[in-house]
């Protein structure tokens, strides 16, 4: 690891100011950032730790949405009565991230800001059509993820919370990569008053919506509606863990499983 200055601001505005200096990086739970620093894949002059900002933590109901603070650890989302009651799919997704020890420390904001192509949360954010709230603006899910480890965030922008609309039904089906246990393919399927959304993580450089499945499911939200749907391998990831061909098949299969689970 290269050395860096460590700052732990007491307010969001301090954090934003500190982040504005060159080569600064936000530290949330650190579950991806610190290993990447250890492997010397990244180098920063300053790490700005959001750990002291209690306002960024917590889960609350706001009308027809759940608002989850960016610094809320996965374990809290997984165990939250509120989430388990109104959005159990999100609790179950959180319960499947990494492992229990990672879930105790890793955060929602950190996960989506990192935008790992195989992370779980991006599927929920896009699948639910969530809004990412920052210290400056609100970004819609469809505009947020831009590519491999790439988001719409400005260098000095801080995610404060994510607003998840409560759907009629939803489920996340994850196929774990055997080594890292990240998503080889993860599918978040949602039926809500606004229609149907199906978001796929792990299969491509960035989370994406499965238009063919959405079109089929909007007519009838049932597993059988997905029969015959196939996915072009173009643009899908292919690596030692799975070929693009297998991922394409797994996306369809995991979509069926997500829909089946959502209907339970």
């Amino acid at each position: 690891m290269y050395d860096f200055a460590y700052l732990k601001p007491a307010s969001l505005s301090d954090a934003a100011n500190q982040l504005a200096s060159p080569d600064s990086k936000l530290l949330a739970g650190g579950m991806s950032l610190i290993p990447s620093l250890k492997l010397r894949l990244n180098r920063y002059a300053t790490l700005v730790d959001l750990g002291a900002l209690a306002d960024l933590k917590g889960i609350r109901r706001e009308g027809d949405a759940l608002v989850i603070g960016a610094m809320t650890p996965h374990a809290e989302v997984a165990a939250s009565d509120e989430v388990l009651t109104v959005l159990p799919a999100l609790a179950s997704l959180a319960e499947g991230i990494g492992d229990p020890l990672v879930r105790n420390r890793g955060t929602l904001g950190g996960s989506i800001a990192n935008a790992d192509p195989a992370a779980d949360y991006p599927a929920a954010v896009v699948g639910l059509g969530a809004s990412v709230i920052t210290n400056r603006r609100t970004i819609t899910a469809d505009d947020f993820f831009k590519g491999v480890f790439e988001t719409a965030l400005q260098p000095d922008e801080i995610i404060t919370a994510v607003r998840f609309p409560i759907p009629k039904r939803a489920a996340y089906a994850k196929y774990r990569q055997p080594a890292s246990r990240f998503a080889l393919v993860g599918v978040f399927a949602v039926q809500s008053a606004n229609g149907v959304r199906v978001a796929v993580t792990g299969a491509a450089p960035s989370v994406f919506r499965l238009a063919a499945a959405e079109a089929a499911l909007i007519k009838r939200f049932a597993v059988a509606a997905l029969d015959g749907i196939t996915l072009d391998t173009e643009g899908l990831n292919s690596d030692i863990h799975a070929s693009a061909e297998y991922r394409a098949h797994a996306v369809v299969e995991m979509t069926k499983r997500a829909v089946a689970a959502a209907l339970k």
Partner: peptide, 21 residues
């Protein structure tokens, strides 16, 4: 997980936590 400890009562991997934090 060889580095697991309890931090404020919760199990965490101490190889991914900064001492200053």
């Amino acid at each position: 997980g060889c580095c697991t400890i309890h931090l404020n009562g919760k199990g965490v991997k101490s190889c991914a936590v900064l001492a200053l934090a």
